[in-house]
Write a protein that binds this DNA or RNA. Structure first.
Length: 367
DNA sequence: ATTGCTGAATGG
């Protein structure tokens, strides 16, 4: 079928067909209704379209996109980083193909979710507030943060407390499960983890959970130390301080005791309240593991906070997001994790592993 | 960006 004119360095016609095949639904039998326009096209013109497209693509991306850019992310969640410590490759697949998650995992996660919601409702109501801008939705997070300050000062217990901060120039956001003053007067963070089976988790899971709560402390402490200046938020998230807040937001703020008109007002209030209310840093990190079905406590872990190690780990995980290194899957010793992974069948990391190390250490092919 | 971009956490 092919014409003769394939020059060296160009795609041969058979290669071209291979390239076209996967996406070319029109070639499939059964799609018979309309005339098959693409296969009627002369190959030369197809080739032209293809090469022009790829040329345009090359002109467009001068520099490879970082994952942050690729997913249009202005910030990351604390749990993005902690899931990364379980398996970075899985975390990436989870973002790209969330629908591929196994149904039994979804059930497990949803059960955990509803247990957490029930606990949150024990300490406060949840109200719906209409938002009119991106600034409005961030205003809600900040109001939720602001409203817990007096409760904490009164020695109360707060749940689902939002925290924000910057590590390695990346904006992070998270939600602390529970913050309380202990009997000894220490500020204690408690993270509840519910489990499907009635025993304590493996080391790998503990490691992930430890990292999660350490990140919360890192961010929270920086916040009460006044490191979260208003412009840190507006510049990273690209929000306008002069943006007027919607009426429902202003009403809600009034109820919590703050009079505000624009987003910047709220940022100033947040900064002042955090720094002037002399809330201490978190003294103690605890994780409680409980069994979902029987609701029994399986055990409590006290986590040691080592700032330098937390920073190093965060730096490593953030390097992926900033495009400083390629995505990584689990090391061979942790390949058991793949047994419970919804993406093991399609996993590129596993394929690479299966090819064997000698193949990967060969000369690099040009991209 | 052509245009626009996010409840976080949920568990093995």
């Amino acid at each position: 079928m092919a014409g003769p004119g394939s020059e060296p360095g160009e795609l041969s016609d058979s290669e071209l067909l291979l390239l076209l095949e996967p996406g070319d639904q029109a070639l499939q039998p059964g799609d018979s209704g309309k005339p098959n326009s693409s296969s009627d096209l002369p190959l030369e013109s197809l080739k032209k379209v293809l090469t022009e497209d790829s040329a345009a693509g090359k002109v467009k991306r001068k520099r490879a996109q970082t994952p942050l850019e690729k997913y249009y992310l202005k910030y990351l969640c604390v749990t993005d980083l902690s899931t990364q410590s379980w398996c970075e490759q899985q975390m990436v697949y989870g973002r790209e193909l969330p629908q591929l998650q196994a149904p039994e995992t979804v059930v497990l996660l949803n059960t955990g979710k509803s247990i957490h919601l029930a606990r949150e409702l024990e300490v406060h109501d949840v109200v719906r507030v209409h938002v009119t801008s991106r600034e409005d939705s961030w205003a809600i997070k900040i109001l939720n943060l602001l409203s817990v300050i007096p409760e904490l000062q009164a020695g109360g217990c707060v749940r689902e407390l939002p925290v924000f901060g910057v590590i390695e120039d990346v904006f992070l956001m998270g939600v602390i499960d529970e913050l309380c003053y202990s009997a000894m007067g220490e500020l204690e963070l408690r993270e509840l983890k519910t489990r499907g089976r009635p025993f304590m988790p493996s080391g790998a899971q503990k490691k992930r959970d430890y990292f999660q709560v350490c990140l919360y402390k890192y961010i929270f402490d920086a916040m009460v130390q006044g490191k979260l200046k208003p412009d840190v938020i507006t510049s990273h998230i690209q929000l306008r301080p002069e943006q007027p807040l919607g009426s429902q937001i202003r009403e809600h703020a009034q109820k919590v005791g703050f009079t505000v008109t624009c987003f910047g007002d709220l940022l100033e209030l947040m900064y002042l309240n955090l720094t002037l209310s002399d809330i201490p840093g978190i003294d103690c990190l605890k994780i409680e593991y409980s069994h979902q079905e029987s609701n029994t406590l399986l055990g409590t872990e006290v986590v040691r906070f080592e700032e330098e190690k937390v920073r190093e780990k965060a730096q490593h995980y953030l390097a992926y997001w900033k495009g400083q290194r390629e995505v990584q899957g689990v090391e061979i010793e942790e390949a058991w994790k793949c047994q419970s992974c919804s993406y093991s069948e399609i996993c590129d990391w596993r394929k690479k592993r299966a090819e064997g190390p000698e193949q990967r250490s060969g000369p690099k092919k040009s991209k």
